[in-house]
Design a protein around this nucleic acid. Structure first.
Lengths: 165, 165
DNA sequence: ATAAAGTTTCAATAATATTTGAAAGTTTGA
DNA sequence: TCAAACTTTCAAATATTATTGAAACTTTAT
């Protein structure tokens, strides 16, 4: 397969994958492009390559920076900004897990604990409610702890863990 | 907090959480309602409780059944169908992991391997491309294996694993 | 064979999310 | 201070996804 085709195919697939996670397509595609690029790219270059508007590129670059997976770079004697992403897949996974933990698990734990002190006449329903939300809370807490460990550990730890399975 | 409020709050939160994953709000809300319900519910009851159209309830129930997390039940002497979901959080997590693995990891592994035999003039770019896609492939394969283990193991195994961390 | 009781489908509509691009803002050098 | 080079914003336009509801379909009892 020719380089240009492979590149297109990868960027497309990465965009689709992103979309099935909460990450929008443009954001995932910009990330894919940066992953493949040997040199950092300017907004201009990204626009041209992905046929995206300036505003879209700018907004999604900012989101990627906010997620902590893309960096801005400045070159001496140049006004333009360049963007790059780390090529370390492990580090990427950690960063994404960390953000998703913060954005998703924390809010649901919050709700689950708020809702625990429920009262009502229908004993059976209330009991079932407490049971289910308590179970979910316990499980989520465990997963949360696991992700926390994961995001703080180093790659070696992870590989050793995989061995044990 | 009163039962009715707590219930609403939980259903709402579960819907939102679902939406940030690839699961649509209605689907997650129906699931939440069934989770809390002591008895199986009919489509009619779900419609009424969630103020959703018949079609929407039907389609999303089918999707939940397709995901393997909701069951149809028939009662003797009744034409109507009733729906229920398992209350075991662990089993739910396994089922969801299994489906997401099938729907998301498998396709990306497919693309990553297809794209490996890339050729082109720009040696450096091609080398970078191969490196990145290979790394992603390896990592994804590992995660895939981990999820497979997870979905086949039992709860005890998981808790023991958590202990080790 | 018919009708009652229910389920499923799907085209139209509504709601959400993404993208554009022009205008406003910022930074830098002369 | 000015203007060139670049970045950011955001209201409007587009595209995508979810929802409705009426009609078609299915099943069962008589």
């Amino acid at each position: 397969m020719q380089y240009a085709d492979a590149k297109q195919r990868f960027i497309q697939a990465w965009g689709t994958l992103g979309a099935t996670w909460g990450i929008n397509k443009a954001m995932a595609q910009i990330h894919a492009l940066l992953l493949l690029s040997v040199e950092p790219l300017s907004a201009e270059e990204i626009m041209k390559e992905l046929k995206m508007s300036r505003g879209n590129v700018n907004m999604n670059l900012r989101a990627l920076i906010d997620w902590g997976i893309v960096r801005k770079e400045n070159r001496v004697g140049e006004r333009k900004e360049y963007f790059s992403t780390g090529k370390d897949v492990w580090e990427l996974a950690r960063q994404v897990s960390r953000e998703r933990r913060r954005r998703e698990i924390e809010p649901i734990l919050q709700v689950l604990s708020e809702v625990q002190d429920v009262t009502g006449d229908n004993k059976k329903s209330v009991a079932e409610f407490k049971q289910v939300t308590q179970d979910l809370y316990d499980f989520s807490t465990k997963v949360d702890g696991m992700i926390e460990k994961f995001t703080k550990a180093d790659q070696t730890w992870f590989y050793k863990l995989l061995m044990k399975l």
